[in-house]
Structure formats: structure tokens, C-alpha cells
Design a protein around this nucleic acid. Structure first.
Lengths: 122, 122
DNA sequence: TCCCGCATGAAAACTTCTTCTCAAGTTGCT
DNA sequence: AGCAACTTGAGAAGAAGTTTTCATGCGGGA
């Protein structure tokens, strides 16, 4: 991940413009609007590089293929629209569940996913 | 899913004895202690049948293959041990996140996964 | 502008998980 | 016990996502 190519710029921009976690397929579709010849292999290669250089972090959701979002954001969770399949960021978190775990369990982190309809699909 | 065979009894018992969500592989290992000849294909077939007849429900966790647990339990969430990879049930849920979603979003459900160390691995 | 070397795209290969195929083994009714 | 039908086990096949291969295409320093 060294040179600045049209493809890599398009993929970076796709994340900045989308403002939500994107799957490799979504990245392909969005970035293809700027670089129509873009291939899926390049998307995967670039995502890998952007994670290594700290621009992106992977986002895993239950039963979903992995997505990516810009790194360095505050602790937050995600909303998955059951209709269009898009994922959105939810700000904030008042989860206190970690404090009443059964004895002996040691919490190190948590993830919350809310399911429903996004504004476009509601 | 009609006949009562050694295999199907062993798989049902595995869930009742484990008391936690099991992946197909875990089911195979546990049930094999009772029926050593057990094959993975039978595990998948039986899991499918047990879901259809309402004895089990699927459990999806971020980035994990699907697991199954006895159906009909109260609303609850899950704990994934990062060391041994086993999943445990967490009782209760005081999540209020659904009430302060951004405008336009409609929540229909949620999932919480806590990561850490289980008592055996802590 | 030239040119080396990294990057790209398409297809093949791989992984991981799950389902199907089919010959052989069991179940349960009689 | 006898038998028809259902079930099983092993391996092949399928599905979905991701990585690799390799010939060709570009980026950017000299």
C-alpha cells in the first residue's frame, strides 16, 4: 500500500462520503462510480492495506459478512436495516451489562447491534 | 425428523447437558462421546430438524459460525470467551439504547455480545 | 519523457461452512 | 423376527467470501 492510485483514492472517498460501515461489495459499487473498471480483488487488497495503515477498522455483525469503517471513532454501536441491509453508526452507549456478569466472568469488551428499519425504509 | 435414533437422542442430550449455545462442531464432539460413529452430516441434518420442530433456535454472533441453543428461553444475550471460544448465556438485559435512536430509525430488536474470559480461562 | 516496479483486473484457487448423494445400517410396525 | 421405509456416514458437491496468480497497466522519481 504505497502508491496513490485512482482506485485507492476512490475507495478512501467512498468511506468518507458514505459515512457508514461498508462491505467489500458496497465499496465496489460505490467506488465503481468513480473508477468503472475497478475489480473486487483490488477492493479486498486495498481494504487490507487501509486496515494495516490504520485508516479503517473491521466491523463484524451477527450473521453478516465483515464490513469496514473509518478508524479512531468513539465507542459506538451499529444499526442494521432489515430491509435494505445497510448498516449505520449509533452514537453513544450506556450499556451496564458488563457490571453484572455471573461470578467468575471477566468482560473485556462488548458489541451491540440494533435491528430495524432505517429512515429510508421505515 | 421422525424416528428416535441413538444419534438424535445424543444430540438433544448434548444441548441439555452443555447448558450453553453449541456450534455444529461442538455438537459433534460432545455427541460423539455417546455415539462414536456420529458424522457431521447427521449433526447438520438433526440440527435443522430440531430447529423446525421448535426444540432449538439459531444464535448468530459477530464473526462466528452459527450456533444453536434450546428454544423458548427468556430474552437474553451472550458471552464469548476469547480464550476457549465457548459461548455462554447471560441472563437479563437492561438495554435502553433502542429508545434514543436517531430520528427516523425504527428498532425491532437487538443483540448484545460481551467478550472476555470465562471462569475456566480467567 | 523514460522506465522500473508496484498496482490492477479477471479468473482460478482456496477457505470455511453447509448440504447432497448413495450404499449400507436401523427403526418400528406387524 | 421380517420387512419397508427412514436414517446414517463418508465423501463429493455447493455456496459464499476472500486470496492468489499472472499478464498488462500505471505512478512517479530521475
Amino acid at each position: 500500500m504505497e502508491r496513490s492510485t485512482r482506485q485507492r483514492r476512490a475507495i478512501r472517498e467512498a468511506f468518507l462520503e458514505a459515512g457508514r460501515p461498508l462491505s467489500p461489495q458496497e465499496v465496489l459499487e460505490l467506488a465503481k462510480q468513480k473508477v468503472p473498471s475497478l475489480g473486487l480483488a483490488t477492493v479486498y487488497r486495498t481494504l487490507k492495506g487501509l486496515v494495516e495503515e490504520g485508516f479503517l477498522t473491521p466491523v463484524a455483525l451477527p450473521g453478516e459478512p465483515s464490513r469496514y469503517e473509518p478508524a479512531g471513532r468513539e465507542h459506538h454501536h451499529h444499526f442494521l436495516c432489515r430491509l435494505c441491509g445497510r448498516v449505520f453508526e449509533l452514537s453513544g452507549c450506556d450499556l451496564t451489562l458488563e457490571s453484572h456478569l455471573p461470578p467468575g466472568f471477566l468482560a473485556e469488551g462488548h458489541e451491540v447491534t440494533v435491528y430495524g428499519r432505517c429512515p429510508d425504509c421505515a
